[in-house]
Structure formats: C-alpha cells, structure tokens
Simulated assay, not measured.
Amino acid sequence: MILNKTRRRNLDYTWPGFVDALSSLLMVIIFVLMIFVLSQFFLSQKMSGQDEALVELKNNLTELSELLSIERESTTELTSQLSILESKIINLKTDLDEKKIIASQYIKEIAGKDNIISMTQIEIGKLKDIINQKNQDSLDDKNTLVQLTKDNKVKDSQIIDKQNKIRASQEEIKILISASLKLRNKLSQLQTLLSAYKAKDKKEKVKVISLGKDVNSALARRVEELQKFKSDFFGRVKALIKGRKEIRIVGDRFVFQSEVLFALGSDELGEKGKLEMIKLASTLMEIEKSLPTDIDWILQIDGHTDNLPVKPGQSYKDNWELSTKRALSVLRFLIKQGIKPNRLSASGYGSFQPIDNRNLVTARTKNRRIEMKITQSTKLK
C-alpha cells in the first residue's frame, strides 16, 4: 500500500509542466538573442573583409594608372622616334634622287663626251657601291619602320587590355559598395526587429502570469481524468482476471506470464494469448469511448525474459531481442483489434529487470513476463 501511494503521488505532472513552459519560453528568448549575436558577428566579419578588398582594389587601380602613364610616355617617345626616322627616310630619298640625277648627268656626260670615257672603272664602281649602300640603308630604314609599327600596335593592344582591366576593377568596386550598403540595410532591419521583439516580450510577460494559472488548472483536470480512466480500466481488467494466478496485478501494472501468451522460446503470440489480448482490447476500447479525446494516454507494453542464454538456431540473437519481439507481437495484435497505434508503446528489457533474483525454476518463471500499464504520453507539444 505504501508503494501504491508513492507511485500515485509521482503521477502529478502539474509543476513539471509549468516549469517546462517557462523553460521553453526562456529557450526561445535565448535562441533569438543567439541569432542576433551571430548575425552581428558574421556581418562585422563580412564588412571588415570587404574593406580590406576595397583597399587592395584601390592599390591595384593606382598601380594600373601608373603603368598606363608609363606606357603613354613610351608611346609618345616611340612616336617621336618614328617621326625622326620618317624625316631621315625623306632626306635619304631626297639624297637618292639627287644621286640619281647626278648619275644620270654623269651618264649623259659620258655619252655626250668622249673624254668622259677615260673615267676609270674604279670611280664608277665606287659610285655604284655608294648607290647600293644608299639603297641598302633605305631598305634597312623601311624594315625598321615596319618593326616600329608592329611594336606600336602591340603597345596599343597592351594599353587597351590594361584599360579593360581598369574598367573591370571599377565595376567590381561598384558591386562591392552596393553589397556593403545592402548589408548595412539588413543590419538595420535586424536591429529594428530585435527592438520589436523586446517590446513584445514586455507585453507578453503580463499574459504569461495569467496563462500559468489556466495551464495549472487544465493540467490538474487532465491528470484527474487520466486517473479516473486508469482506475476504471484497472477495475474492469481485475474483474476479467479474477481468480487467475497466471495474470497478476503488481502496483499500477498488469503482469502476464509469458507462458500464457507465448510458447516456450517463441516470439509469436499463441492462440491462448490472442484470446487474452482480444478481451483486453475490447475492454480498453469500451472505456476509451467515455474518455475525452484530448487526454493523451498510452498503454506501455514491456517484455521481460529469464537469465538463461538463448539456444543456438533461434530466430533472435539474445534475450534483449526476444523480449522486444514479444512486446512488439502484443502491440501489433492489439492494433489489429482496433487500438490506435499512437496509444501503444513497446519496449524490451531482456533479463535485466527481474522480479525474483533467486536462481530457481520458479523465479525464472516469474521473470518471464509481459507487463502493461496505462501512462501519460510524453510527446512534446
């Protein structure tokens, strides 16, 4: 009787429910604050990284500008050299024309005068060498001009590439500035939202106090209704098992010996066990009809075995698996009889929760059992 009173007092969940409600509210507030702190940290990290990138881009832009000015000076110098070479070519052409005129004059003089025939071939050869040299110089100047033109085109191409890079850098700087502004706007929005939540929390504190009283009274009513349901269920099942030694009541549990429900070493519900479970399911469904639908109750089914090791060739590995399979067999049969799955729970404890620790046949028989009890659902809402 002392054990029964102790267990009934432990079924009062009013205060834990109230504490759970307050702790849930505190966790929500802490979670919101953590989100804000993390967002502040990541935003500051992002902003500092972007400032460093902007400084680096500005340095690159300065270097590119300096390179561009150097290339422009080089282009100006090449242009001036080109103009000098062109003037030299013009002078050479003028000299060549003059030499041609002189040569033609010499030829005319040789043709017109017999005394010019005495001119030595050496002088004529020298004149020819001079003319050839002038022609070669002119050809070299032309080649130099062509090479300078090609170099100038290469330089122009390099200048265009650098200008394109500068434009791309400027566009990237604009994008980074825009992203920085967006981040600042988001930070401002988060700060505004946090202020709104703080103001809302101040208003809700008053409501929580009044709601706590309602929750306590509602929980008390639900516990009372569940206790009434359990009492009614116990009374009817007691009437069913009256005078039967193989089915016992221990505290708030019904204890079915495994031999009533299963054959020795089997995890399949036997015919006798099915009849017992049909009666139990019928009683449970009949009582449930008079119970409010919003009361969360569960029929907990626990499987237990003796401490003898599992024999080779069985379909289960150990007593853990055997106890679990037996509990699941009962659970599945009750579902077939119409009990809702959300009202059932099954667990296996193997041989580790005996009710008789003696190493006797009678003790092992007691320990092979299926226990059932009505309890309250532990699901979170």
Results as ranks from 00 to 15, higher is better:
203 K>Q: 08
203 K>S: 06
205 K>A: 04
206 V>S: 14
206 V>H: 13
207 K>D: 11
208 V>F: 15
209 I>D: 09
209 I>W: 15
210 S>R: 07
213 K>Y: 15
215 V>I: 15
216 N>R: 08
216 N>E: 14
216 N>S: 10
217 S>C: 03
217 S>F: 10
218 A>M: 04
218 A>F: 09
219 L>S: 03
220 A>K: 03
221 R>I: 00
222 R>E: 06
223 V>E: 11
223 V>Q: 08
225 E>Q: 05
225 E>R: 00
225 E>P: 01
226 L>R: 01
227 Q>P: 00
228 K>R: 03
229 F>Q: 01
231 S>D: 08
234 F>W: 15
235 G>I: 02
235 G>T: 05
236 R>Q: 11
237 V>G: 02
240 L>R: 06
242 K>Y: 13
244 R>L: 05
246 E>W: 13
249 I>C: 04
250 V>N: 12
252 D>Y: 10
253 R>Q: 12
255 V>M: 12
256 F>L: 08
257 Q>R: 06
258 S>T: 08
259 E>I: 07
261 L>A: 02
261 L>G: 06
263 A>K: 12
263 A>C: 10
265 G>C: 04
267 D>G: 05
267 D>R: 05
268 E>G: 04
269 L>G: 04
273 G>S: 02
273 G>E: 08
277 M>L: 14
279 K>S: 06
280 L>I: 10
280 L>K: 06
281 A>Y: 15
282 S>E: 15
285 M>E: 15
289 K>W: 11
292 P>S: 05
293 T>E: 13
293 T>D: 11
293 T>C: 00
295 I>E: 01
296 D>E: 15
297 W>V: 00
297 W>Q: 01
300 Q>S: 12
300 Q>P: 02
302 D>V: 04
304 H>Y: 15
304 H>W: 14
306 D>S: 07
307 N>Y: 11
310 V>M: 03
311 K>D: 10
311 K>H: 09
313 G>T: 04
314 Q>S: 14
315 S>R: 09
316 Y>E: 07
317 K>Q: 13
320 W>F: 13
321 E>K: 04
321 E>P: 09
321 E>D: 13
322 L>H: 10
323 S>R: 09
323 S>V: 05
324 T>I: 10
325 K>H: 11
325 K>G: 01
325 K>Q: 11
